[in-house]
Design a protein around this nucleic acid. Structure first.
Lengths: 240, 240
DNA sequence: CGCGGGTTTGAATCATGTCAAGTTAAGTGG
DNA sequence: CCACTTAACTTGACATGATTCAAACCCGCG
């Protein structure tokens, strides 16, 4: 196993880590960080790579360092639904369960920092801080899931699209914002992904996107780069 | 404040409590139970009573002792979506947040055992057991929410109805089951509630229910009592 | 240059929503 | 015990938003 230097400060590996300040690791002190770092592994995955299969055994958890991961569920006849999107520095994994109930797949190139399941679970028992941090993330994911239930159940196709764009704009952060009310970002999802997320077909997604473009609510460049000149107008379309 | 006898055993109030063995209280030891019992309050609410409003201040949490509670969200134009159903002995409340982001309403007559927010939060800090118990419930609710996202996004109206009946059959428990594969239960929801839960209209709900009845998958008595002679056939209709 | 994945667009179809009557069941008061 | 009211539910006819199927488009890449 790789040696990690502990000079009384945080491990070298973590010093430059994007997840250090905002991810679950922020709940750990130096000693714990060292311990975890010893067992950790940085990995990269290409867009489209499966990270976790339904009914697969879980033996590692991971922090997302960069990129976007989609969580999906599939019905027996192939219909698919994305049930969550995770952005850096989210924690990936479902404690207290040995089998996954969903699929995780990279929708962009991603980098992960993964740990053995039992290391995390031991530290959770020792550190209420860590457990609380994970508990909070679970509650946030629950809030998000419930927001999406409203979107899925009660919004029209165009409202769904607008809501998704808005959500992504928030998640990529207020980076690339000129004047607080505009946004500009690369879609981390294909049309098919968007359809799976919103419970629509790719055709409907496409049509609604061109509608938003025709109405000058958004500009689309290269099919993937989205520019929102006025987030308030987009918000009005989202039905909130 | 009411005095609770502590003879070294569990408080009298809790001794006969339905939530004692299975609810969050099961994570507490005698002393903690006594402490919580001192601040607790048993209340009853009629079907239809609002328990918690959106954007309302949260100052108490509660255990559901009996009955069913619906959690709803509403769009500005009045469209409503049920984002969760809670059955006894679920814990009602959203830790780490002072304002509610949803409405809670009794869909049947319910009895609750409520506690001040800060009492729970203090005990959570003192008892990792309790925090873990709540964390687990949050994860379960998250799993359920994600299952419903699939239902809302990808299932047809009749599959939605079948899924809901199945879910309720599971929740009321294997009580009233003759031979493991049949079920018989009172619907704790009106047609309007069902519609709000499944993202449908009451008319569609009604039509699909009569379709299931015509196909002999279910019997409906008094509009509320549902009998499922063969759960497997219902399951086949649910699209799993 | 052609090939393939991702995307857009069009026309026809279908599931669900909308609107409008009915029906049933449970009170309520005479 | 019987009209009357009311809420919840069912049913029908019609409208419409989204899907389906089919074709064309775009663009990077070998």
């Amino acid at each position: 196993m790789r040696k990690v230097v502990n000079n009384g400060a945080i491990p070298l590996l973590c010093a430059s880590c994007e997840g250090r300040s905002t991810g679950v690791c922020s709940a750990l002190d130096c000693d714990q960080l060292v311990e975890l770092a010893e067992a950790s592994r940085k990995t990269a995955a290409k867009s489209g790579a499966a990270l976790l299969g339904e009914a697969e055994r879980i033996d590692r958890y991971a922090n997302i360092l960069s990129g976007v991961v989609k969580l999906t569920k599939t019905l027996s006849d192939g219909r698919q639904q994305i049930v969550g999107l995770q952005f850096a520095p989210d924690f990936l994994g479902r404690p207290f369960r040995s089998e996954s109930t969903l699929n995780a797949e990279a929708t962009t190139d991603v980098t992960l920092c993964s740990f053995p399941k039992d290391a995390i679970e031991r530290m959770m028992r020792e550190s209420p801080e860590l457990e609380r941090r994970l508990y909070r993330q679970a509650l946030n994911e629950l809030d998000e899931a419930r927001d999406w239930m409203v979107t899925l159940g009660r919004k029209t196709a165009s409202e769904k699209i607008a809501s998704l764009l808005l959500m992504i704009a928030h998640h990529v952060g207020p980076s690339t914002v000129a004047g607080r009310n505009s946004a500009r970002f690369d879609l981390p999802l294909t049309r098919a992904d968007i359809a799976d997320f919103l419970g629509l077909t790719i055709e409907t997604v496409s049509r609604q996107l061109t509608r938003l473009r025709n109405d000058k609510i958004i500009c689309i460049e290269n099919n993937r780069l989205i520019i929102v000149p006025d987030l308030r107008r987009l918000n009005a379309r989202a039905g909130n």
